[in-house]
Design a protein around this nucleic acid. Structure first.
Lengths: 205, 205
DNA sequence: CTATGTGAATGGATTCACAGCC
DNA sequence: GGCTGTGAATCCATTCACATAG
């Protein structure tokens, strides 16, 4: 059990969780690091190393108990605890993410959505009343929201991010192609769609 | 000028391109690796190493010519050449991506969209007539589409991916939370939205 | 005999540090 | 002097290999 856990390990932990969940539904009680690794096309040693960050979770000679491991990972990642998110920017992408089913399974709940446009404010978008971005701070505090999904136009990105920081947001999933400059206290992950597509296509042939 | 170019380098090249484009608009003629690196919060040596994969692009003592470097990167990444993509699965996310403006700037054009639902087939979605997924192969070949964006439900993901492979698709940007099993000829990049959000939130505090 | 857990070896990417050129 | 280009050094993640436990 070491100190610093690599981000890559956390990502794989989530993948393990998904497979274990599925395996359990199938009635699989026990699994070896090798079998789990094969499903993900990685090495058994990788699985074991990842899990070893969190203690001795398996039984030598016998492998891992699927349910126990799944529950341990759920605990590590706090998947059971619901976490509130807000979505800022109700364009096409923002509206699609509000409705995205996948978030629920990992314990996220969209607690508020924001936009700046009078045509959207106070209207329902996929079941959520769109709030004026002016009230960002108030609503984020009222609902104790810690995570924001940022889908505003590029021009508004930095400014909006600053408002999110001021409102006390701890993490931002940034869909804008802008490098946000905030204090290091705010954890930022970027999803740059056009870039992903371009990187991908560069490697063909 | 070495052999294998890391994927990370390609990603940064795209970022450099974006900044150079912007700098050029501002009238900046020349830039040092240090200044460019500062904009991206990386090291100058990283910029120089990345660029060195493609030859000697700068002038010792003087830095890089913004326009020349931008154009060289555009050439390396073939940003000028239009590449056709299709979007498969016209749910909320698929429909949002069809309308996503950011793709154009990097030379992508949505040439076809597909779904399986009779309610959508032959109807216009954000300006594109939605095709029956049955005609996937035919239309992909007619338009010489090489890249696909996959936004079908998880249950249909693997099956649809196989059809894309058979149709001759070279690369897939996979938005489903499914590990696709295809021959290694098809380059796959995964964007797992729920996972990104969960990884992000794990690291807060 | 089987499969985990882990220190050591390997591999890959980043950063250093300086020779080389302007 | 200033800044690039690059081999060497460093850092970090993955993989190996084996002692250890069941």
């Amino acid at each position: 059990m070491k100190k610093k856990i690599p981000e890559k390990t956390i990502q794989r932990l989530l993948l393990y969780y998904r497979y274990l969940y599925f395996l359990l539904q199938q009635g699989t009680k026990n699994i070896s690091s090798k079998s789990l690794a094969d499903l993900l096309e990685i090495r058994g040693s990788q699985v074991r190393k990842d899990l070893s960050y969190f203690g001795r979770l398996g039984t030598r000679g016998a492998g891992y108990d699927v349910m126990a491991l799944r529950d341990t990972i759920a605990e590590i990642l706090k998947i059971d605890k619901e976490k509130k998110v807000c979505v800022v920017g109700m364009g096409n992408l923002g509206a699609a993410l509000v409705a995205y089913k996948g978030f629920e399974a990992l314990g996220f709940k969209v607690a508020a959505v924001f936009d700046i446009s009078p045509q959207k404010i106070n209207h329902k978008i996929r079941g959520h009343t769109c709030h004026d971005i002016k009230n960002l701070s108030k609503i984020i505090n009222e609902h104790s929201i810690e995570v924001a999904i940022l889908t505003v136009p590029a021009e508004a990105a930095q400014e909006t991010a600053l408002r999110l920081e001021k409102a006390g947001i701890k993490a931002i999933l940034n869909f804008t192609p802008v490098k946000l400059s905030l204090s290091k206290k705010v954890k930022i992950n970027n999803i740059d769609l056009a870039m992903e597509l371009k990187t991908l296509s560069f490697f063909i042939r």
